[in-house]
Design a protein around this nucleic acid. Structure first.
Lengths: 194, 194
DNA sequence: CTAGGATTTGAACGCATGTTCAGTTAGTTA
DNA sequence: TAACTAACTGAACATGCGTTCAAATCCTAG
């Protein structure tokens, strides 16, 4: 037997990705089997191969699409004066990442699981994103910021901001906007802004 | 055949842990097999079970010993005035973690691989460590610091400091002491210290 | 030199893995 | 209604997994 009722290709495809994302985030890429994913989609393992060439592609595509969407979204930042640009970046980063906690999680938790070329590809995208923050710091450094080392400050800020996704829980003491506001304050002080 | 030359129990035991640590850090707990570990130790897989009851214990013991050593080492911090205590903590955290990059890495990368009780145990230790930093911030908050939210600042600082282990490479532009000094500056500003 | 214990081997256990594919079914087109 | 195709099943493939254990080996104590 096959095909229960109705055409499923446009349903099964996305569901496979959604289930894979959730399971990878929960248990890690290596600990999740194709049969587990298939079971949660409601299909046999073989059916997945109508949509994805192999398991690695399932992970890589999730990460690649995430990083490309992140880069595209950050292209819309207005920029402007360094202080405003920093505020804007911090708020964007936190809100964007909190909306996509699972994608963020696997996108750096599962870097080890990527084959070398795939790893290099994702790293390039991540680097491009970090460069945007560094550009703001370098710009501000010529006027209002007081940073010893812009490269280090970039890494420190990114780590501090992304760390939010590790402890944030819906319905907690602080909502995303509260957190963004508080991190904006800390980020400003961190770079020595007025 | 068995036992090549000399008694090995006090050599094989530690080597199993060392190899497991390295492989877990490289590829992740789920992706490393007992046979791989055994092969790198120079032994058959069965021999590992003379030293460890099962694979999970291998991971858990590495993490537990790491966290307990971290807590013990941080007990030796002198404390004192908030500003000095913060400087001391930042420097300690960075230098200690850079010396043990692999342990740090797996200790929060492989939390998902722990069974619930083991996970709870490690989380308790981690929490105890973070509380030490928060105590410094709370103390300073009554006098020299200007923080909106000490809990958030603690998490932000820990994330920022631990992030160093993700990009640090031996022989890079900056050595551990350079990095510690720069992070001390950033940490001071972050908490609004003089 | 021998007895006994410590240490390791090597094979086996049952089960899970990613992937392939011939065959079956359900929906669409003519 | 008949032919066609997209979608899926279910079984199989070779390989690997964590773990157990009798048997073999080596070292040490007496």
């Amino acid at each position: 037997m096959a095909r229960k009722t109705g055409s499923h290709s446009d349903i099964t495809g996305p569901r496979i990705n959604a289930v894979a994302l959730r399971l990878f985030a929960e248990s890690g890429y290596a600990a999740v089997s194709m049969r587990q994913i298939a079971a949660e989609v409601g299909v046999q393992a073989g059916a997945i191969y109508n949509y994805v060439p192999h398991k690695q592609a399932l992970l890589f595509e999730l990460m690649r699409e995430h990083m490309e969407a992140l880069l595209a979204a950050s292209d819309d930042l207005k920029g402007g004066a360094p202080e405003e640009a920093l505020d804007e970046f911090v708020r964007f980063h936190i809100l964007y990442h909190l909306e996509r906690a699972e994608l963020v999680f696997i996108s750096y938790m599962e870097l080890r699981a990527l084959e070398p070329e795939n790893f290099a590809h994702i790293e390039r995208l991540r680097r491009a994103y970090e460069d945007k923050l560094e550009a703001i710091l370098v710009d501000g450094q010529r006027s209002v910021f007081a940073i010893e080392d812009t490269k280090l400050a970039t890494l420190a800020l990114i780590a501090m901001l992304t760390g939010v996704t590790n402890w944030f829980r819906d319905g907690g003491r602080l909502g995303p906007e509260d957190i963004a506001a508080l991190y904006i304050s800390m980020a400003r002080r961190l770079v020595g802004a007025g």
